[in-house]
Write a protein that binds this DNA or RNA. Structure first.
Lengths: 300, 300
DNA sequence: CTCTTGTATAAGCTGAGCTTATGCGAAGCC
DNA sequence: GGCTTCGCATAAGCTCAGCTTATACAAGAG
């Protein structure tokens, strides 16, 4: 089986051939492709010579496909249109219509979803796609224009970044839990309640131990309580009254505002880290991706 | 809708991309395509830049398609394989396996068919295709390598030619006709019989008038008798006893030898013309086409 | 630690892929 | 019939896209 590279004088001559056959004219094909008639003539002739078959009958001021040319044209036309559609989709995704944002499930659910209507109102015509994952995606490698990450920008040498929110962590409980067990008034009381622990396998997240330490206390039995490996599920459990969990302000703020979640104690742990929208240094953002980035930063 | 020519850095980069994705290696792709690894790297990078999307993750000693790259690869692979198949078929037809011979229906039926087994025995492995038509095809324009024509080579400036048979014409009848009406002994008697006239719309063929004139006689009522516009049908009618028709020696010889046709009178009209195998001056014959040509000429 | 090997990239080369200009011929028009 | 139009083929010339060779670097393997 021979490669097309050996079968053809150049792959570009296929594109030229397709246009000439469709338009029955070398001059019209040249116009469409931004070339001269002479270049089209040479390209078609090169193709005919390499394939050893006459593809066109040359008529007065016109060319007509031979029978063999007709068959070949049908196949080439089908193949190229397939490829063109795909290339256009890919380019659209990369440079236009679609913009993909890679983020955690929790960010998607609790930060972006409550703001989606606003996003649509302010940036109509941009098709935003959230790609969630249980780890921070290598968006450079994946060809995704934008991501949201927690941490410190100095750890991401290949990325630009803009801050979205500082990392502020405090306990949150659901109303039904508090109605049943009462609201803890002090850090010490809190330690006696049911605590829900987040255990993400890939992302580093602050734990209850760290929070109590930041409050100048200690948790005597760290093993007690529910353990869940997805923060979105943690929040669901809290709202259903299964216990108290640590809340990240930027994620919990909408739920707090609506009363679905209630802050517990007045101690807030500030890690010094923050959440950022990031994008690759090695590639220019499309106009739309830049707009999405700027919109995100404006929510800070 | 943008042309592929504007969407891609070069169409050739599609072929390179297809191979690299299939082989997960720029070095292996270069080997297959007869290029260096560096050229592959540049081609893929050009494609990525033009499309604005990362197609591969670069790993140690390996490349892996991104999700976007996978989708694009599937489409490119499908499109290119479609085109490759077609190009291979076309090239095979033009240069190898298939050889097409353009000829009249009569030549195909009465000259070639009786010799086909012999052809196959002597030139096994060549797929000969007879393309019949009611006129002499412009085989240069149609991209057909060989043709059979009656006439004079000086009328075909663009063709080479080799003689197959002189044009010799005499009346032939079927056995059932002769059993019923008797065998005409003289040209004058012949004139009283049922004569079948050939009226081809495009090819110039000798008529009964011409034949009688060559025999020094005249046909008093040229309108009398069956008129048929296809010589193969003329011969069928003769064999079914509908009348007597003019026979061309090179076409009728096998039928005469088997007794299906009987020569009438001993007058033979020689036009000074002949039948030739012809092929275009502007293009080299493939090996197989040359073999077919030589085989045909050897039947003379 | 050394070695292997496959990707990226710099520097340089060259001929494929055009361009401009012109010739030719088939149609159409008057 | 002569004249005009215009689209294909082809000659001559140009140039930069598409390579090549050489080298740097890094991830694995042993």
């Amino acid at each position: 089986m021979r490669s097309l590279r050996h079968l053809l004088p150049s792959a570009g001559s296929l594109i030229v051939f397709e246009a000439a056959g469709r338009l029955s004219s070398f001059t019209a094909a040249g116009r469409e492709l931004g070339m001269t008639q002479a270049a089209v003539s040479y390209a078609v002739r090169g193709l005919e010579e390499q394939l050893g078959a006459q593809l066109f009958q040359r008529r007065h001021r016109q060319v007509v496909l031979t029978e063999a040319g007709e068959r070949f044209h049908a196949d080439v036309s089908l193949g190229l249109s397939h490829i063109r559609k795909s290339a256009e989709d890919l380019r659209l995704q990369a440079t236009g219509g679609h913009v993909t944002l890679a983020a955690s499930t929790a960010f998607g659910s609790f930060w972006m979803m409550p703001r989606l209507q606003q996003f649509r109102d302010e940036l109509p015509g941009i098709d935003l796609r959230i790609q969630t994952a249980d780890r921070d995606l290598d968006i450079i490698a994946e060809g995704i224009p934008l991501g949201v990450r927690g941490g410190e920008p100095r750890d991401w040498a290949d990325y630009h970044s803009l801050a979205l929110a500082d990392e502020e962590i405090f306990p949150v409980a659901g109303a039904s839990y508090l109605a049943k067990f009462g609201l803890p008034q002090t850090v010490e009381q809190l330690a006696t309640h049911r605590l829900i622990h987040l255990e993400e396998p890939y992302r580093e997240a602050a734990s209850w131990d760290e929070w109590f330490e930041s409050a100048g206390a200690s948790l005597s039995d760290a093993a007690r309580g529910l353990r869940i490996n997805d923060y979105a599920l943690v929040i669901q459990a809290v709202m259903e009254g299964q216990g108290i969990a640590l809340g990240w302000r930027h994620l919990a703020s909408r739920l707090l505002a609506s009363g679905l979640l209630v802050p517990v104690t007045d101690h807030v742990m500030k890690t010094g880290k923050a959440f950022y929208v990031v994008w690759p240094k090695n590639r220019e953002l499309s106009d739309n991706a830049r707009k999405v980035r700027d919109w995100l930063a404006a929510q800070a």
